[in-house]
Design a protein around this nucleic acid. Sequence first.
DNA 1: GCAAAAGTGTTGTGTCTACACCCATGT
DNA 2: ACATGGGTGTAGACACAACACTTTTGC
Lengths: 209, 209
Amino acid sequence: MRENRLQVLLWERAKQPDLGAWSLPGGYLEPGETLEESIRRHLAAKVDVREVAHLEQLETLSDPDRGAREWQLATCYLGLVPRDLDPALPEDTHWHPVDELPRMAFDHGDITLAGRERLRAKLSYSNAGFALAPQEFTLSELREIYVAALGHPVSATNLKRVLLRRGALEPTGEVRSHGPSGGRPAALFRFRSRGLEITDPFAVLRPPR
Amino acid sequence: MRENRLQVLLWERAKQPDLGAWSLPGGYLEPGETLEESIRRHLAAKVDVREVAHLEQLETLSDPDRGAREWQLATCYLGLVPRDLDPALPEDTHWHPVDELPRMAFDHGDITLAGRERLRAKLSYSNAGFALAPQEFTLSELREIYVAALGHPVSATNLKRVLLRRGALEPTGEVRSHGPSGGRPAALFRFRSRGLEITDPFAVLRPPR
DNA sequence: GCAAAAGTGTTGTGTCTACACCCATGT
DNA sequence: ACATGGGTGTAGACACAACACTTTTGC
């Protein structure tokens, strides 16, 4: 979440092929290294992103003509960075709104959209919001985040009830007064857990009793 | 589905390490080959399984000490073979009930259970049943399949209504009379589609209107 | 008092489970 | 007739959306 929109961190290619196109951050796997370790290493080294709140494998792509000059496998990850963190970025990397992607290198555009789909699904049945939201937030702020990520209107009223009933959210007890134009101070909330939890097992075909 | 239980096709290892343990069928990727092509090739060659109704990538494992002697990556797939197909199997491969696995090689036990979890989830919100059921079936038969795969009681009454309302099932118009002990003939059904379709987008946090 | 923003109460709806009941066939 | 298995009808639980209404603040 940057500027109230869902954004991806992209890296502008400085060489052929696809010079000038934007690509997802990543790199090669070192021998004896876990895929997850590898991603974290590349994120830390190339774009100085050390605080990934949630990291999750998406898919391994193997199509010989997926874009690179030579045949190569890519395992894609979805990584979420909370809104209040602002990692220092090198010159050639920028945040881009996911619904307004620039010219993307290889199949990285599809991968990005697949990541967004995964995020949308997870927001619906888990506490995934913790990885996008700051530590503490008002319900209006949380609502903005859900709206940006899901791409459709969300009512703060119902969002609160859903997340509270599921036990994902808890009030901090604090309030935050709002701008000089008045308005009732908003209660602050936090996510009860900072690890992914499935808060709502599928409501369909559930076991009896 | 074999003998009214959910079963996996396993292959008994004839060499060290893990000699005598059972492993999932699979093998190495050839240059320029897609992962999916590779799986299909290995299944066809090693265990003569050519009719996989549904094939879906699970996860790529990369932990250096996941069991093999040397570090190797494995991309796991979930493949479903309909109940009425009975591929010819070599001597060293057998079907094993998933809830009574033998001693498994490497991390193949965990992978198998992960596959079952994925299957259970998909049965709940998609038409995945088509890949387990025969072409035509009675509702009792379908119920047995769901019971075996999900591991909990399922009512034929409600199963019918759910799958019909979702448009996953359609009646063939035929009936099948039952054993010599009487009973009303059962109507036959088939799945409307033989490809995976999400029949029920998440019922939670859905878009307004 | 009035606008602005947050929060609550209440109703409606869709989708499932549970369970009692009815239907068609064989002996 | 009655046992056996298949199928229908109806009521209830639950989780969500929608919306009107109330509360708390600043000016």
